[in-house]
Amino acid sequence: MDSDAAREIDIESAHSARIYDYILGGKDYYPADQQAGDAMVRAWPALPVHMRANRDFMNRAVRHLAEEAGTRQFLDIGTGIPTSPGMPMRLRTLAEAGQFFEGLELVEPGIVQVHRWRPEGTDSTEIRDEDIAMYGAVARTPG
Protein backbone atom coordinates (compact mmCIF):
# COMPACT_ATOMS: atom_id res chain seq x y z
CA MET A 1 0.00 0.00 0.00
CA ASP A 2 1.50 3.36 -0.99
CA SER A 3 1.52 6.28 1.45
CA ASP A 4 -1.26 8.16 -0.40
CA ALA A 5 -3.64 5.19 -0.12
CA ALA A 6 -2.82 4.80 3.58
CA ARG A 7 -3.89 8.40 4.20
CA GLU A 8 -7.19 8.13 2.36
CA ILE A 9 -10.27 8.65 4.51
CA ASP A 10 -13.49 6.83 3.71
CA ILE A 11 -16.02 9.67 3.75
CA GLU A 12 -18.79 7.51 2.31
CA SER A 13 -19.05 5.38 5.47
CA ALA A 14 -20.01 6.79 8.85
CA HIS A 15 -17.41 6.57 11.61
CA SER A 16 -18.14 6.65 15.35
CA ALA A 17 -15.60 9.42 16.09
CA ARG A 18 -17.04 11.70 13.42
CA ILE A 19 -20.63 10.90 14.47
CA TYR A 20 -19.64 11.86 18.04
CA ASP A 21 -18.19 15.12 16.72
CA TYR A 22 -21.36 15.85 14.73
CA ILE A 23 -23.74 15.18 17.61
CA LEU A 24 -21.66 17.37 19.94
CA GLY A 25 -21.84 20.23 17.44
CA GLY A 26 -18.35 19.88 16.00
CA LYS A 27 -17.18 20.50 12.45
CA ASP A 28 -15.16 17.40 11.53
CA TYR A 29 -17.75 15.11 9.95
CA TYR A 30 -19.12 14.19 6.56
CA PRO A 31 -22.68 13.68 5.23
CA ALA A 32 -22.57 9.94 6.04
CA ASP A 33 -21.71 10.77 9.66
CA GLN A 34 -24.50 13.36 9.86
CA GLN A 35 -27.05 10.92 8.45
CA ALA A 36 -25.98 8.18 10.86
CA GLY A 37 -25.99 10.63 13.78
CA ASP A 38 -29.47 11.86 12.92
CA ALA A 39 -30.71 8.26 12.70
CA MET A 40 -29.13 7.42 16.05
CA VAL A 41 -30.74 10.44 17.72
CA ARG A 42 -34.12 9.47 16.27
CA ALA A 43 -33.70 6.01 17.83
CA TRP A 44 -32.27 7.36 21.13
CA PRO A 45 -33.34 11.00 21.63
CA ALA A 46 -31.21 11.29 24.79
CA LEU A 47 -27.99 10.45 22.89
CA PRO A 48 -26.77 14.08 22.75
CA VAL A 49 -27.34 14.37 26.52
CA HIS A 50 -25.40 11.12 27.02
CA MET A 51 -22.50 12.31 24.88
CA ARG A 52 -22.31 15.72 26.59
CA ALA A 53 -22.38 13.99 29.99
CA ASN A 54 -19.44 11.85 28.89
CA ARG A 55 -17.50 14.91 27.72
CA ASP A 56 -18.31 16.77 30.97
CA PHE A 57 -17.12 13.76 33.01
CA MET A 58 -13.79 13.74 31.18
CA ASN A 59 -13.35 17.46 31.88
CA ARG A 60 -14.15 17.01 35.59
CA ALA A 61 -11.84 14.01 35.87
CA VAL A 62 -8.94 15.87 34.26
CA ARG A 63 -9.61 18.94 36.41
CA HIS A 64 -9.51 16.72 39.53
CA LEU A 65 -6.26 15.11 38.43
CA ALA A 66 -4.61 18.44 37.59
CA GLU A 67 -5.87 20.57 40.48
CA GLU A 68 -6.39 18.13 43.34
CA ALA A 69 -4.08 15.21 42.58
CA GLY A 70 -1.22 17.29 41.15
CA THR A 71 -0.98 15.38 37.87
CA ARG A 72 1.16 17.37 35.46
CA GLN A 73 1.21 15.16 32.40
CA PHE A 74 -1.61 13.36 30.58
CA LEU A 75 -1.71 10.76 27.84
CA ASP A 76 -5.02 10.45 26.00
CA ILE A 77 -5.45 6.89 24.79
CA GLY A 78 -8.34 6.15 22.49
CA THR A 79 -8.80 9.68 21.21
CA GLY A 80 -11.42 8.62 18.70
CA ILE A 81 -9.40 9.37 15.60
CA PRO A 82 -10.81 7.27 12.75
CA THR A 83 -8.65 4.32 11.84
CA SER A 84 -8.99 0.93 10.27
CA PRO A 85 -10.22 -1.54 11.24
CA GLY A 86 -13.05 0.22 13.12
CA MET A 87 -13.25 2.42 17.47
CA PRO A 88 -16.53 -1.99 17.79
CA MET A 89 -18.30 -0.95 20.94
CA ARG A 90 -19.08 -3.39 23.73
CA LEU A 91 -21.61 -2.61 26.42
CA ARG A 92 -20.62 -3.70 29.94
CA THR A 93 -22.41 -4.04 33.25
CA LEU A 94 -21.22 -2.18 36.33
CA ALA A 95 -19.55 -5.38 37.56
CA GLU A 96 -17.75 -5.82 34.23
CA ALA A 97 -16.60 -2.19 34.26
CA GLY A 98 -15.32 -2.69 37.79
CA GLN A 99 -12.87 -5.34 36.57
CA PHE A 100 -10.84 -2.59 34.87
CA PHE A 101 -10.17 -1.06 38.29
CA GLU A 102 -9.13 -4.19 40.18
CA GLY A 103 -6.03 -3.51 42.28
CA LEU A 104 -6.44 0.27 42.01
CA GLU A 105 -7.63 2.81 44.57
CA LEU A 106 -10.84 4.42 43.37
CA VAL A 107 -11.26 8.15 43.92
CA GLU A 108 -14.63 8.98 45.50
CA PRO A 109 -17.40 8.49 44.47
CA GLY A 110 -16.03 5.38 42.75
CA ILE A 111 -17.56 3.86 39.64
CA VAL A 112 -20.79 5.70 38.86
CA GLN A 113 -22.75 6.90 35.87
CA VAL A 114 -20.64 9.65 34.29
CA HIS A 115 -23.02 12.46 35.20
CA ARG A 116 -22.85 11.38 38.87
CA TRP A 117 -19.04 11.64 39.17
CA ARG A 118 -18.43 14.86 41.14
CA PRO A 119 -21.09 16.88 39.34
CA GLU A 120 -20.42 20.11 41.25
CA GLY A 121 -20.83 23.16 39.09
CA THR A 122 -22.51 21.34 36.22
CA ASP A 123 -26.14 21.00 35.27
CA SER A 124 -26.02 17.21 35.63
CA THR A 125 -28.70 17.33 38.34
CA GLU A 126 -31.16 17.76 35.47
CA ILE A 127 -29.88 14.67 33.66
CA ARG A 128 -32.00 11.56 34.08
CA ASP A 129 -30.15 8.36 35.03
CA GLU A 130 -31.99 6.43 32.33
CA ASP A 131 -30.53 8.75 29.66
CA ILE A 132 -26.93 7.84 30.52
CA ALA A 133 -25.50 4.47 29.50
CA MET A 134 -21.90 4.96 30.63
CA TYR A 135 -19.93 4.49 33.82
CA GLY A 136 -16.89 6.52 34.79
CA ALA A 137 -14.30 6.50 37.52
CA VAL A 138 -10.87 7.82 38.41
CA ALA A 139 -8.39 5.53 40.12
CA ARG A 140 -4.74 5.51 41.09
CA THR A 141 -2.19 2.84 41.80
CA PRO A 142 -1.89 2.04 45.51
CA GLY A 143 1.07 3.38 47.28
Rank of each mutant, 00 (worst) to 15 (best):
A5C: 02
P45D: 08
A137M: 11
P88E: 06
Q34R: 14
S84N: 03
E68I: 09
D123H: 03
D4E: 12
I9S: 04
A5D: 09
H64E: 13
W44S: 09
R116S: 00
S84H: 05
A17F: 02
R42A: 13
L91W: 10
D76T: 04
S84I: 03
S13P: 06
G110V: 01
R52S: 13
I81M: 08
A5W: 01
M51W: 11
A61E: 08
D21I: 00
R116T: 02
T79D: 13
N59G: 15
Q34L: 10
E120I: 03
I19H: 01
R90N: 06
P109E: 07
D123S: 14
F101H: 05
V107S: 07
T79H: 11
M89E: 10
R52A: 14
Y135S: 00
A5F: 04
L24F: 09
G80E: 14
G37S: 09
A39S: 15
A139D: 07
D2M: 05
K27F: 09
R118G: 02
S84K: 06
F57V: 10
D38Y: 02
P88S: 12
T141V: 14
E108G: 04
E96Y: 00
R128E: 13
T122D: 12
G80L: 10
L104N: 12
Q73P: 08
D76A: 09
P31H: 02
H64A: 11
H115Q: 08
Q113L: 14
A69N: 06
R90W: 09
T71N: 01
F74A: 05
L75Y: 08
H115V: 00
T122Y: 06
T83K: 10
A95K: 15
A69D: 11
G25E: 10
I19C: 04
T141I: 10
I23W: 03
G80K: 08
Y29L: 05
F57M: 02
L106K: 00
Y29G: 08
V114E: 07
T122N: 06
M89C: 14
W117Y: 12
Q99L: 13
A61G: 03
H50E: 13
R18N: 07
A61V: 09
N59S: 12
I77Y: 11
I132Q: 01
D129T: 07
D33V: 03
G136E: 01
S16M: 14
T141K: 11
A139R: 09
P48W: 04
S3V: 00
S124M: 12
P109A: 08
V41D: 06
T71G: 03
G80D: 10
M134L: 00
V62N: 07
R63M: 11
G26E: 04
L94E: 15
G80F: 10
I81L: 14
A32R: 15
L65V: 06
D76I: 12
I11S: 05
G98A: 05
D2Q: 02
G103K: 12
P85E: 04
R18M: 07
D4S: 04
Q73N: 07
V138Y: 06
F100H: 13
M51L: 15
L75E: 02
